[in-house]
Design a protein around this nucleic acid. Structure first.
Ligand code: DGT
Ligand code: MG
Ligand code: MG
Ligand code: ZN
Length: 561
DNA sequence: GCCGTTTTCGGCCCGACTGTTTTCAGTCG
């Protein structure tokens, strides 16, 4: 019973109660579910320690239910509710514009319980006759059912860069467009995003929105008004655009960046101070006392500024009250995991060096695959020597590293007498993901014990949306990392982002130092460093925790330590 | 159902857009 499963049950209870028209309880269950889904502690540990009621929005009643769920694997209260209702709420509420009230109405009037029966009723024209419904409503439902089947729910953050560029170019081309900001979860650097949220300022919002809605990649409109417009692009990506006056830019940015629960928490603070916070500003009565920029909004609430990456209502507001938010890592001076023609990279050594110089780095490291034939294009002895010569004649701090596979027994696939010729060795797991936590941990520890291994790449092996990362015995991993001065990597490539935020947070709390690398297989991918830094910031990492924030000599000293 | 140095009872974020209404409920961000 992990956090996700507990949260799902609480969410499902909220859905069922909502359908029964129960007041307020659904909100309570949802808030508790939210806390549990996002907290970094394991719910089982919290239960063992008897601290369930310390979780925000978990009181005695919900705590009892969680305890039962953990102890017995099921929950009688939930089963009872489920038995009473025949409606597949999860399926139906995925339909755009279909919420609890309508679902209940449809069930009461037409016994609609799932997508199939909804579709049938709509096609037979039965829905238009219901009270409060009409022809348009029925048509919209049919359309929403049609599109629900083909739209993806979330996108890997790094995969929408081109769409964002195109949207920005289109929107800012219009003279009515002022300040432009990508807000929402994208700005918070979450690994996946549900949609793209864009904030633009304008003195002529209607004119600007007309222009925005003429974007050629739009497939269909979802809503349009005088302050916002929403649509779906031909590739299935949802876009929400909000237009406000520039005097509200800060408060609108705060609102539209979220997260939702962070917003609600801030608005409660405002209430307590006798103020009101909305996207239009922070108000005392009719008077706007902040809103032009985000800093003024936080200051007006008596809070230290909170970076977007931390705005998840996971303790950051409490820290900000006490001015305890640290200065987060913002920039690195080098990148030492990347691949070239020597293994499976798409660019030459020279091209990668040129690109790293353009990134503004002071140093870099090339880490082509070496040591095993299992990974495509691993270098042999001659190639390693040839690459060394090529690297050594450069007028730039270029290190020669290697990425070496850890085999299923924990042995490196290259011998020490070959490893010793590299400036540093990166070890990583590319197979045997299904071993036990113990076995996987042992493999990682064994690699860290090797004197030439300086970095463990993508430590959990996850591939976002495709493969869950494996779990490790983190305490032992962190301890060995410290003992051997082996750095755990924050791999910045879009599908990995591994270590992820909660592991980063745990690692730095344990006293580990980390390194952010892109694992670029071409020059373009070097730019995903930004996302790696974003993930590090989500994990509260500061400069002192990230070794490649150092200039060359101190970095080298740490790498060789 | 949860929560609280102005409350242990009575609140629970605040606003835009849509479709169906002749004044607003539902859904969404
Ligand atoms: N105050 C308030 N703000 C909300 C609410 N729902 C959404 N927002 C704000 C905060 C969100 O970050 C922002 C954009 O909404 P989205 O639904 O796109 O969520 P977000 O981008 O955070 O996550 P996503 O990856 O899109 O699922 O709008 C709400 O119920 N109340
Ligand atoms: Mg969003
Ligand atoms: Mg959105
Ligand atoms: Zn590779």
């Amino acid at each position: 019973m992990d956090n996700t499963r507990v949260a799902r049950v609480l969410e499902a209870i909220a859905d069922l109660l909502e359908l029964e028209d129960v007041q307020w309880k659904p909100r309570a269950y949802r808030a508790a579910a939210q806390s549990i889904a996002f907290m970094s502690e394991d719910i089982n540990d919290v239960y063992q320690k008897g601290l369930l009621e310390d979780i925000p929005h978990v009181g005695s009643s919900i705590a009892k239910k969680i305890a039962e769920l953990i102890k017995t694997g099921s929950l009688r209260y939930y089963e009872r509710l489920k038995k009473k209702s025949k409606v597949n709420i999860e399926e139906l509420s995925r339909i755009e514009g279909l919420g609890p009230k309508t679902i209940k109405h449809l069930y009461d009037a037409l016994h609609i319980t799932n997508l199939a029966s909804l579709k049938k009723a709509a096609e037979e024209g039965k829905i238009r006759n219901l009270e409060g419904m009409g022809k348009k409503r029925e048509k919209n439902l049919l359309e929403a059912i049609h599109f629900a089947q083909k739209t993806k729910d979330r996108h890997v953050r790094g995969h929408v860069v081109r769409d964002i560029d195109a949207l920005k170019t289109h929107i800012t081309r219009n003279p009515a467009a002022g300040l432009f900001l990508i807000a929402g979860s994208y700005r918070r650097y979450t690994e996946t995003i549900g949609d793209i949220d864009i904030l633009v300022t304008s003195t002529q919002p209607k004119k600007l929105i007309t222009h925005i809605n003429a974007f050629e990649r739009i497939e269909r409109m979802l809503a349009k008004g005088s302050t916002k417009t929403s649509f779906v692009l031909k590739n299935g990506l949802h876009v929400d655009v909000r237009v406000v006056d520039k005097n509200s830019f800060g408060s609108a940015a705060q609102y539209f960046t979220g997260s939702k629960y962070h917003n609600i928490a801030l608005r409660k603070i405002a209430q307590k101070k006798g103020l009101k916070l909305s996207e239009y500003g922070l108000f005392r009565g009719e008077k706007r006392i902040a809103g032009k920029n985000e800093k003024s909004v936080y200051a007006g609430l008596g809070l230290q500024y909170i970076s977007p990456e931390l705005r998840e209502n996971q303790g950051e507001i409490e820290l900000a009250k006490n001015k305890k938010i640290p200065t987060l890592v913002a920039k690195v001076h080098g990148d030492v995991q990347m691949h070239t023609h020597y293994s499976d990279g798409a660019n030459s050594v020279g091209e990668m060096i040129h690109a790293c110089k353009k990134m503004g780095y002071a140093y870099m490291g090339i880490s082509d695959h070496a040591g095993t034939l299992k990974i495509a294009g691993a270098m042999n002895k001659q190639q390693i020597a040839k690459q060394r010569k090529e690297i050594d004649k450069q007028d730039f701090h270029v290190l020669q590293g290697a990425e070496v596979d850890i085999d299923s027994k924990g042995k490196l696939t290259l011998k020490n007498d070959a490893l010793k010729d590299f400036d540093y060795v990166i070890a990583s797991i590319h197979s045997g993901f299904h071993q036990t936590k113990q076995q996987l941990t042992t493999r990682i520890l064994a690699a860290m014990q090797n004197e030439y291994v300086r970095i463990i790449a993508h430590p959990t092996g996850r591939v976002i949306g495709k493969r869950e990362g494996y779990t490790l015995d983190w305490e032992r991993v962190f301890n060995t990392s410290k003992e051997t001065n082996t750095y755990l990597e924050i791999n910045a490539s879009p599908e990995r982002l591994d270590l992820r935020d909660e592991h980063i947070h745990a690692a730095i709390n344990a006293g580990c130092k980390l390194i952010i690398n892109t694992d670029a297989h071409n020059t373009d991918s070097l730019h995903c460093m930004d996302a790696g830094i974003g993930m590090a910031r989500r994990g509260y990492a500061q400069d002192k925790h990230i070794i490649n924030t150092k200039s060359y000599m101190p970095f080298l000293k740490l790498l060789k330590a």
